[in-house]
Structures are given as C-alpha cells and as structure tokens.
C-alpha cells in the first residue's frame, strides 16, 4: 500500500503520537526479545560444552564451543531412521494433500449442480467429528492400522486450507478468463491444468508449507496408529528423547550408543545433556527454514485467501 502524504512519517506528528510511537517501538523490541530469546538459547546451547550449560554460563553466547552434542545426534540410529520416515511421510503426504486440495478447490470455485450439498458435506466436518475412538476403529477396520500409508492418508485435507485455496482462485482468476478459454475450446480439465495451476504458484507454495509443516510436526497420529518402532516418525521419537521428565529413561537412547565402558558412560551422560538441544535444532530447522524461504509468497497468499474466507 502506498504511503500518502498525510500518513506515515512525512508530516510533523503531534507530541502524543510521537510518545505513542516511542512506546510502541519499545513494546515490539520487548516482544521480539521474548519471541526469539528461547530459540537463541537452543542454538547456543547446542554448540556449547555440557558443563558450561549445567553451570548456567550459556545465556547470551556459546560457552566453550563444542560439537559433541551433534556427534551424539549423528550416531543415534533410531533418530535417523525416524528422520528418514518423517521425510517420506512429509513428502508424499504433502504431495497428496496439495493435489487433492487444488483439485477440490477448483471444483468448489465453479458453478455446478449439487454445489450446496458438496459444500455442506465438507463444512459440516468442521463442527462435528466422530471423535478419536471411532476414527481409530475405522482405520483399523480399513486395515490401515500400523501401516505407513495411514500416516500419509490421515488428515490429508484440511477444510480451512480448502477454503483458502478456493477463495484465492475466485479472487485471482476472473470468470472472464474461464469464459475466454471455453470459447477457445477449453474444458474444465484443460483449463485447470493449463491455466489455473500455472497461475496458482503462490497458493501452491502456501499450501505446501501449511501441509508440509503440519506433517513434519505431527507426533500424535503415530502414537495412535503405529505400533512398530521402525515406522515411527521423527517427532514421536523426539518426544521420548526430550519431552519427558525422568532424565534416566530419556537419556538411555543416547547412552546406548556409547556406553561401552565406564569412561564412555560418563561421557555419554555429558553428551546426552547437550544432545537434547541439538535434536531440537536438527528437527525444527527444516520447518523453520522452509517457512523463511517461502516467506515472501506466504503472507501475500494467506491474506488473499483469508480476506473473503
């Protein structure tokens, strides 16, 4: 939005407004500090010496730079297996979600007989669900319990994303474009694949980030639908390593990689303390980087989609 002569910094502000701006700036610096400091601690602790962390010396800058936490993480076999699983689930899951959502959103953006019914079938699920137990029994009856497929299929379409994509198409692709294409001999298929998809880069990027990050971060689905440890995704394994109170059990998985002798044991304990920070960096990095990378499409696409939705 272009700044006009009357708004912004170009005119002399009243004293009250200058005071307001000063306080507002201070407020936001505080908010930024509160938002980013916890993340900063994780990063500096992951490259510090465990003794320095325990002594409370890692508050602003890494102390006694060391990579032993990352060494422990890289040797942790189960973690990497789950990392690979999560990549597979995220990749295929996102591909499925984005394709199905784009097709559905296109359908919902056009006029057709029975649109009201289709809309109702979809929107009703936002207000009423069967609940966890019937969903679980349904998955089991479908023969999908303890399969990798269920972690790709479950939650593959979100009503919200579907509506955002539909609104985006309605507001960026004028109906005249469709009419012109029809005169040139296009049908819905050719119009969708040759015109809608190429013009929907922004919303495809937004959907990919939404769906991709949701998949990558999901630990609960695997807790419900998966029994075999070898099929668990990263976040479910992560939960056992970092999100438990009793340090003894959560450290075990790191101990086992090293504890060949007594000396190895104490080293392993030291490593486990810092390795928790490293696992956070390794697991959260991809999601945050993907967001930062896609950021410029992001705000624009989300705003267009949410404006009318």
């Amino acid at each position: 939005m272009k700044k006009t002569a009357f708004s912004g910094r170009h005119i002399i502000k009243s004293r009250g407004d200058r005071l307001f701006d000063g306080i507002n700036l201070g407020f936001w610096i505080l908010v930024l500090a509160l938002t980013l400091y916890p993340l900063w601690i994780i990063i500096i602790a992951s490259v510090s010496d465990p003794d320095a962390i325990l002594a409370g010396r890692v508050l602003i800058w890494p102390a006694d730079f060391s990579m032993i936490g990352y060494q422990a993480v890289f040797k942790h076999k189960e973690l990497w297996n789950s990392y690979f699983n999560a990549l597979i689930y995220t990749l295929f899951g996102t591909l499925l979600s984005v394709s199905v959502t784009m097709m559905g959103a296109y359908g919902l953006s056009r006029k057709f007989t029975g649109k009201k019914l289709v809309n109702f079938i979809i929107v009703f699920t936002m207000f009423f669900t069967g609940g966890l137990i019937p969903i679980f029994l349904n998955v089991r009856d479908l023969g999908l319990y303890n399969t990798r497929a269920i972690l790709i299929l479950i939650n593959s379409v979100s009503v919200w994303n579907l509506m955002v994509a539909r609104t985006y198409m309605q507001s960026t692709l004028p109906n005249e474009l469709y009419e012109a294409a029809v005169i040139d001999g296009a049908n819905h298929f050719s119009y969708f694949f040759k015109i809608v998809l190429p013009l929907s880069g922004t919303i495809i990027a937004v959907l990919s980030v939404y769906y991709g990050v949701a998949r990558w971060n999901d630990y609960f689905s695997a807790m419900v639908f998966i029994r075999d440890r070898s099929k668990l995704p990263l976040q479910t394994v992560l939960r056992e390593i970092i999100a438990t109170l009793t340090t003894s059990t959560s450290n075990e998985s790191f101990f086992s990689a090293y504890a060949d002798d007594i000396k190895g044991m104490t080293d392993a304990m030291r490593q486990a303390a810092v390795a928790k920070y490293c696992t956070i960096v390794v697991s959260t990095g991809p999601a945050v980087l993907l967001y930062l990378f896609m950021q410029k499409y992001f705000v624009k696409g989300v705003m267009i989609g949410s404006l009318k939705g």
């Binding site: 908010v31 930024l32 938002t35 980013l36 916890p38 993340l39 601690i41 994780i42 990050v213 990558w216 971060n217 999901d218 630990y219 609960f220 976040q235 479910t236 992560l238 939960r239 390593i241 970092i242 999100a243 438990t244 109170l245 928790k276 920070y277 696992t279 956070i280 697991s283 959260t284 999601a287 945050v288 993907l290 967001y291 930062l292 950021q295």
Partner: peptide, 21 residues
C-alpha cells in the same frame, strides 16, 4: 516474519523446551 516463527515449531519440541528451560 519473526513473530510467525514459533508457529512452525512442533508440540513435541515445545514440550521439550519446557522441560529443558
């Protein structure tokens, strides 16, 4: 950009950060 970042962190990691901090 910065205030959106925490939204992309998983629940497991949030809980892990609580236990650590």
């Amino acid at each position: 950009t910065a205030i959106y970042v925490p939204h992309f962190i998983s629940t497991a990691v949030i809980a892990g950060m609580l236990y650590l901090f």
